[in-house]
C-alpha cells in the first residue's frame, strides 16, 4: 500500500525552493523563482516601510526589493557579500526578496504538505499552504504570490495601501 501511494504521489510532485529566515525554513514554488542573486546596488525609496529596501535594475526593468527579515522580524538584517536575494516572477510582476540563506530544492507531493496549525506564526495563515517535513526538518510552505501581492506587503497600488 505504502509503495502504491508513493507511486501515485510521485506523479503530483512539485519542486520547491527552501530558504531560511532566522531559525525557520520556508519553501516556495520553484516555478515562481526567476533567479537568485546577491544583494547589490539597491536604490532607496523615500517614505516607505523599512522592509522595502528600494529598487534595483534587473536587465532594464525596475524591480522592488523587500527584506523578509525586516518584514517578519526574523534573523538579522545585515547586508554583505553573502546576503542573497530571490528574484520572484509572479505572473505580471517581478519582486526581489532578501532572505538569510537559500538552502535547497526539494520535491514535495501534495500529500507531503500538511495543513498548518494555527500557531500564530510570523506569517498570517492565509499565505501558508501548510507544513512539510523534509529530512527531519520542518519547512513552512508559503504561497509567495499571494503574500507578495497582498496589501500587507505594500508592493502593489491598492486601495488599502494606506493601511501599512
Amino acid at each position: 500500500m505504502a509503495e502504491m501511494r508513493d507511486e501515485q504521489s510521485r506523479v503530483e510532485t512539485r519542486e520547491y525552493l527552501t530558504f531560511t529566515l532566522g531559525a525557520e525554513e520556508y519553501a516556495i514554488d520553484i516555478l515562481k523563482v526567476q533567479e537568485i542573486r546577491g544583494y547589490d546596488a539597491v536604490t532607496r525609496i523615500a517614505n516607505t516601510p523599512d522592509y522595502i529596501k528600494g529598487v534595483i535594475n534587473m536587465r532594464g526593468v525596475i524591480v522592488p526589493v523587500v527584506d523578509m527579515r525586516l518584514k517578519f522580524h526574523l534573523g538579522e538584517a545585515t547586508y554583505d557579500a553573502f546576503t542573497v536575494m530571490i528574484i520572484l516572477n509572479l505572473g505580471q510582476r517581478i519582486v526581489g526578496m532578501v532572505v538569510d540563506a537559500v538552502s535547497d530544492v526539494i520535491a514535495l507531493s501534495d500529500d507531503d504538505i500538511r495543513p498548518a496549525p494555527d500557531f500564530g506564526a510570523t506569517f498570517d495563515t492565509q499565505y501558508l499552504m501548510g507544513l512539510a517535513t523534509v529530512a527531519e526538518r520542518m519547512a513552512i510552505v508559503v504561497d509567495i504570490e499571494k503574500l507578495m501581492t497582498s496589501s500587507e506587503m505594500g508592493l502593489v497600488d491598492q486601495l488599502s495601501q494606506t493601511a501599512v
Binding site: 525609496i45 523615500a46 516607505t48 529598487v55 532594464g60 526593468v61 525596475i62 524591480v63 522592488p64 510582476r93 517581478i94 519582486v95 505594500g154 508592493l155 502593489v156 497600488d157 495601501q161
Partner: peptide, 10 residues
C-alpha cells in the same frame, strides 16, 4: 522607466 510596472506609484 516606469516604477509601476513591478512596484507602485511613489
Amino acid at each position: 522607466k516606469s516604477l509601476e510596472t513591478h512596484y507602485r506609484k511613489v
